[in-house]
Simulated assay, not measured.
Amino acid sequence: MFTGIIEDLGTIEKIESDGGNLHFTLKTSITNELKIDQSVAHNGVCLTVVAIDGNRYTVTAIQETLNKTNLGLLKEGDIVNIERAMKLGDRLDGHIVQGHVDQTAICTNILEQDGSWVYTFEYDEKLSNITIEKGSITVNGVSLTVVDSKINSFSVAIIPYTYNHTSFKELKVKDSVNLEFDVIGKYVKRLNELRN
Rank of each mutant, 00 (worst) to 15 (best):
M1D: 12
E7F: 01
G10D: 09
T11A: 01
I12D: 11
E13N: 11
I15D: 07
S17Y: 04
D18A: 12
G19R: 04
N21C: 15
N21S: 15
H23R: 08
H23V: 11
F24H: 02
L26G: 08
T28R: 06
I30Y: 04
N32M: 11
E33C: 09
L34K: 03
I36G: 06
D37C: 11
Q38Y: 02
A41M: 01
H42I: 11
N43F: 08
G44L: 07
L47I: 05
I52D: 11
I52S: 13
D53T: 09
D53A: 12
G54F: 05
R56K: 15
R56Q: 14
I62M: 15
I62T: 09
I62K: 11
Q63T: 15
E64G: 06
T65M: 07
N70H: 13
G72A: 15
L74W: 10
G77L: 10
D78L: 05
R84A: 00
D93R: 09
H95C: 03
V97E: 02
D102Y: 02
D102K: 06
A105D: 03
I106Y: 00
C107L: 10
T108M: 08
E112R: 09
E112T: 11
D114M: 13
D114P: 00
D114W: 12
G115D: 09
S116H: 08
S116T: 13
S116W: 05
S116N: 14
W117Q: 05
V118L: 03
V118M: 03
Y119S: 00
E122N: 10
E125V: 11
E125C: 03
K126D: 09
I130W: 01
I130G: 01
T131I: 08
K134F: 04
S136P: 05
T145Q: 07
V146C: 03
V147M: 04
D148K: 10
S149E: 08
V156K: 02
V156T: 05
I159N: 07
P160H: 05
T166K: 07
S167D: 14
L171E: 04
V177C: 08
V177Q: 07
D182K: 02
I184H: 07
I184N: 09
Y187T: 08
V188R: 04
K189D: 13
E193G: 07
N196H: 12
